[in-house]
Amino acid sequence: MSTRERKQRIELLQGTLDLLILRTLRLGPAHGHAIAKAIEFGSADVLQVEQGSLYPALHRLIKRRWISVEEGTSENNRRAKFYRLTARGRRQLVIETGKWDKLATAIGRILQPSEQEAES
């Protein structure tokens, strides 16, 4: 763990954490720590998620009924809370992904107009 690595990490945009959680849970139920690890791993450690911020986000999603929570046993036989994507959450994931794509495309166009012109 070095300073070099930390410099390359970027903070998450507001609201994107929800999207990442939903995407992670599409693969199956998971407990909080596993979700945090999956996000870090998935983004090749680029996204700096303060792990604690996961919990308010998880509860927000429960409240919106996009995910549900149940008691379960983890890989090493410890009791833990497992979060699971609901049908509603699955639908929402599609919507959010679409939104994100649009946003990314739009921002990309603004930031690199010359490249696009050059390409075309």
Binding site: M1, E50, Q51, G52, S53, Y55, P56, H59, R60, K63
Partner: peptide
Amino acid sequence: RAALRKFGNVARVKEDTREVW
């Protein structure tokens, strides 16, 4: 220390989570 740093402010996380409800 690393784990705590990575987690962030525990008290605030609790508070924020509670506030959701």
